[in-house]
Design a protein around this nucleic acid. Sequence first.
DNA 1: CCTACGATTCACT
DNA 2: GTGAATCGTAGGC
Length: 221
Amino acid sequence: MAGPGGVILNAVDLRRLLAGPVERAAPALLGWDLVHDDLRVRLVEVEAYAQDEPGCHAFRGPTPRNRVMFGPPGFAYLYFTYGNHWMLNVTAEPEGRGCAVLLRAAEPLDGLDAMAERRPKARRPEDLLNGPGKLAAALALDQTQYGFDLLDPRSPLRLEPGEPPGSLLVGTRIGIAKGKGDEIPWRFADGGRLRWVSRPLQGLSPTGTIGPSPDAGRTGR
DNA sequence: CCTACGATTCACT
DNA sequence: GTGAATCGTAGGC
């Protein structure tokens, strides 16, 4: 059944979509569930990164850190930054192209107690997974899962079909330095689950509406 | 070898 | 809203 924001595909079709342009594949991940052992979350916010832009880790070619980005689509690219945080991406586009989708926020479904233990600073369920570093911490992700096939049903860390998004919201990506693609609208969120998003969305919706999203009560950046 | 900085989070004003 | 923390990575010399 298709919601206003799209449909949930099966794993084979998702892999096929991930092999296409990363900015088209990224929103298709919304509504998918990310499962790590007994933990389950539903993706509500993602960002696309393409090899050709200076803000992308793969911009200057393969390195030991980003090598999985140049492999086939649907695999886990994890990296460590700010001396503290791990970030999880899904590789995209065909082998040889260094592109990926950053998973920025999710709704917790199973294993809330275990996630809360890993996120002692979180006072509310909304604070468990509303940021890429938080998401990785709550799900106990680090270099261990680097290169895992996220579309392999046997993988301890994997994607599974969830529920289609209520609507698709689009905005500019967070934390991108000026001149490095900060104006590109490749941040995508499920308009039906704004409660779980990392920060309010102010950008365009694909329908052409301009302005704050319905749920955006807090101050934007 | 040395330096700059980051796809962030948190505490604090 | 502002700024510090913290360290691996990448680029330059």
